[in-house]
Nucleic acid binder design. Structure first.
Lengths: 158, 158
DNA sequence: AAACATAAGTTGTATATACAACTATATGGG
DNA sequence: CCCATATAGTTGTATATACAACTTATGTTT
């Protein structure tokens, strides 16, 4: 009725079965996470940004007009192992952020998004939103539910 | 009651809100996918295998005792952009696979998992399974549901 | 205040990823 | 049969990731 092509995990990975529902779930979340990241980073490329760089700009906007330290950025990044120093280097080269030693604590560096950075983010917001609209086969209720299930999946022993 | 520590996405990324349910869903699936991959690859490291290498071994076991070509491996990998040639190189160095030119079609290469490879997989199966059991706060029904929702999320225009 | 420990970033390096260019083989007309 | 085209892998390279070692600055003891 709506022209969507269902692509089950079994079809994607050309595998007949995945043993247990848990195995299938785990593989499916990994696969779908990668699939989403590629869709987004592919769109971002036209603006010369990687997914992580866009992520950092978003964090900086959240602090604006206050500065953020590298530590703050790192703990909020989607992928914490990315090297925040070098990501910020790249953004600095492009004039999207400023960086200077923090006056109070000279170990820290204050990073602030520039006007140019804010402008660029406005543009990438649009493509993010366009991409999100492509998932409209998922109802808002299901979107909420997926979010809740992901949170539950990450719960761990206290 | 069961000592689990809930870690909502908002806590993980120290963000108050995610705009829309769709945005939260997308970010959460990406984040959770990465989170899972790290948990698995961290465990695999003790066997000197990366997640992708383990993935390739699994694919080869699926074909065993028949050979697989690089093309077949590539289309079944979780991350298709990984360079199958070089992944197989690594497995070859470790004696986990054999590789030889296909007799019928000399463009192709036949790759077969070795006994050593099969043995190693048995061990990594165990750790995979142990990890999966850690997600028992998710009921089997919910695991099925997550799988279905991931499939639905990836549906696209025909 | 000197010595030790901790914190915040930076740098180095090995490996992995993304993507394009290249080589070798096979296939299908004319 | 020869040439164009397609197929199957390989290689090169720029960027990114993972992780450890290293600076420099701050805090804490005694």
């Amino acid at each position: 009725m709506n022209g969507r092509k269902p692509m089950k995990l079994e079809d994607e990975l050309k595998q007949k079965t995945f043993g247990s529902p848990y195995r299938r779930m785990v593989v499916n979340v990994m696969f779908t996470g990668n699939w989403l990241q590629k869709a987004f980073s592919c769109q971002l490329k036209q603006y010369g940004l990687s997914l992580q760089q866009n992520n950092v700009l978003g964090i900086l906007r959240g602090q604006y007009p206050n500065p953020a330290t590298l530590g703050l950025i790192q703990e909020r990044m989607l992928d914490r192992d990315s090297n925040a120093t070098r990501l910020v280097d790249k953004l600095l080269e492009k004039g999207l952020v400023t960086r200077c030693q923090c006056a109070d604590n000279r170990r820290k560096v204050d990073i602030v998004i520039t006007e140019k950075g804010l402008e660029l983010l406005k543009q990438t917001d649009t493509i993010m939103q366009n991409l999100e609209e492509k998932y409209s086969q998922i109802t808002p209720e299901e979107a909420v539910q997926i979010g809740e299930l992901m949170d539950k999946l990450r719960e761990r022993e206290g």
